[in-house]
């Protein structure tokens, strides 16, 4: 098994060794990390966390728009660590996840991947 070390910045820097091939939601919960979740297939955002260091593969997620991704959000139920990672977890990491959609609209390049248009130079 290829292992990665996951550091939880907002849980006192606690570290966990996880299987690189499995979703972080599963591998962290199995080690006792209390995480929110909902759909468990990458569609609903409830398990979102913020990646502050490292790289992950979350190609199966369909919940995040490009602004949320730019702000570092990842969907733990489908995210697999490509490197060692540092995360902020739980709703205390959700400060930039939610925004009033009328008061703070998205630019065309900030929409979800399937409808976003490239940012003009």
């Amino acid at each position: 098994m290829t292992s990665r070390t996951i550091t939880l910045a907002n849980r006192g820097g606690a570290t966990y060794s996880v299987d690189a091939r499995r979703p972080l939601l599963d591998t962290l919960r199995e080690q006792g990390v209390d995480l929110p979740y909902g759909c468990k297939y990458g569609g609903c955002i409830t398990c979102a966390a913020r990646l502050t260091d490292g790289q992950i593969d979350q190609r199966r997620q369909v919940a995040l728009n490009n602004r949320q991704i730019a702000n570092g959000y990842i969907i733990l139920c489908v995210a697999r660590p490509l490197t060692d990672c540092t995360l902020e977890i739980g709703v205390d990491s959700h400060g930039k996840l939610y925004r009033n959609p009328f008061a703070d609209p998205l630019e065309p390049h900030e929409l979800k991947a399937d409808i976003a248009t490239p940012k003009e130079a």
């Binding site: 909902g38 759909c39 569609g43 609903c44 955002i45 919940a63 995040l64 728009n65 939610y98 959609p101 009328f102 609209p105 998205l106 065309p108 929409l111 979800k112 409808i115």
Partner: peptide
């Protein structure tokens, strides 16, 4: 489920 984006 993830929330409401008006542009959608």
């Amino acid at each position: 489920m993830p929330g409401f984006d008006l542009e959608e």
